[in-house]
Design a protein around this nucleic acid. Sequence first.
DNA 1: ATAAACCCTGTAGGCACTACAGGGTCAAGA
DNA 2: TCTTGACCCTGTAGTGCCTACAGGGTTTAT
Lengths: 133, 133
Amino acid sequence: MAFTIGEIGKATRTNIETVRYYERIGLLARPNRGANNYRSYGQDALDRLSFIRRSRDLGFSLEQVRALLGLSDDRTHDCAEVDRISKAHLVEVERKIEDLTVLGRELRAVIDSCDGGIVAHCRIIEALAPPER
Amino acid sequence: MAFTIGEIGKATRTNIETVRYYERIGLLARPNRGANNYRSYGQDALDRLSFIRRSRDLGFSLEQVRALLGLSDDRTHDCAEVDRISKAHLVEVERKIEDLTVLGRELRAVIDSCDGGIVAHCRIIEALAPPER
DNA sequence: ATAAACCCTGTAGGCACTACAGGGTCAAGA
DNA sequence: TCTTGACCCTGTAGTGCCTACAGGGTTTAT
Ligand SMILES: [Zn+2]
Ligand SMILES: [Zn+2]
Ligand SMILES: [Zn+2]
Ligand SMILES: [Zn+2]
């Protein structure tokens, strides 16, 4: 029931430097230490780290994760705030997709216009350069 | 024909701190200075900064911009490398869109599953928490 | 004369890690 | 038993790309 940092790292596919980083910023509690000063984690810490990983995989920021963790501890509270955070994040993700889609379209148009040849005639360079004066 | 940092900043919609940053990392040449030690830019510097801005707007990294600038100076060289960099960047953009699309789908599914109520029954929290043991 | 708006240098902060340097500890094989 | 390698520790600095001061000087307008 006691895990080393390497074990919880492997179990959650999290770099151990990252685990220590989460501890440093207060996202994970400071664990007990063994006689050798090694960190010793219990199941609860492993669960918490899993929660963090999963949230990160869904693109939540660490501050959002911190808020979600806090909210998830308050089991009898209603979940409106959880929903709000999640929806706000989804909106952000959707906006990023739109931005990248526009950008990709423009980039593709620029690239397609190049027929090869020398830089002096390259349409890509031309497209990047400032307009004629 | 001589511009202050504020003027080229405004003309290219670039923060003046950013202009100084570009100078520091060697993306922009160190400009001449006036008697008051103010930076004094010519049209060439303004053009170069415009090129950087436009490339950044298309999502190129500063290292890619640096390479593109170097290539664009060699007017008689062929543009294959320019194309390669641009296509590599487009591939990256497309991969990001795909990743975000998958993520957005998953996030939406998680959010849609929540019917409100208390945190103990919230499906979002449940989806984030580690699987039952 | 004074205030606002501009400019300077240098440094530190932000995000979310990642990579050392320079040590200590432990398990397994020769 | 010795040694190799895998693991662990702390603390600091680096990444990309800015952004934000602090603590000054200068210019312009009123
Ligand atoms: Zn509550
Ligand atoms: Zn070309
Ligand atoms: Zn050449
Ligand atoms: Zn809910």
